[in-house]
Design a protein around this nucleic acid. Structure first.
Length: 99
DNA sequence: CTAATGACCATTA
DNA sequence: ATAATGGCCATTA
């Protein structure tokens, strides 16, 4: 466990239920938006169950193709279950993105 | 130490 | 709309 991933989880847990945030947004909360890539790696390599990684999408509002177990389909269902609206089959409505 | 990788981002064609 | 390119950062081999 590195300090970086630790912080990433801290931020991800901050995302309110029924909302989603982009990797860039998370990185920004950590200091710089360029950490987006590293954030994705952190979530990919440390998929702890107590982390709402399904609320994290990319800047286009799309879901991770390589999302652990199930892929973006399952992730989408989880978000819908929380009240997140989708603009279409693969895009999350921007208004449900954290500012 | 260096090189390669990835659940990214923005720009350009 | 999709494809390719360059850049960014932390982790891993």
């Amino acid at each position: 466990m590195t300090d970086f991933t630790e912080d990433v989880y801290k931020i991800v847990k901050t995302i309110p239920k029924g909302k989603v945030a982009s990797y860039g947004w998370v990185g920004k909360q950590l200091g710089s938006a360029r950490l987006a890539r590293a954030v994705g790696n952190a979530l990919h390599k440390n998929p702890f169950a107590d982390i709402p990684c399904h609320r994290v999408v990319n800047s286009q509002g799309k879901l991770a193709e390589k999302f652990g177990k199930g892929g973006w389909r399952v992730q989408k269902e989880m978000l819908v279950a929380e009240g997140v609206r989708f603009a279409n089959e693969h895009r999350v409505d921007q208004r449900w993105m954290v500012v």
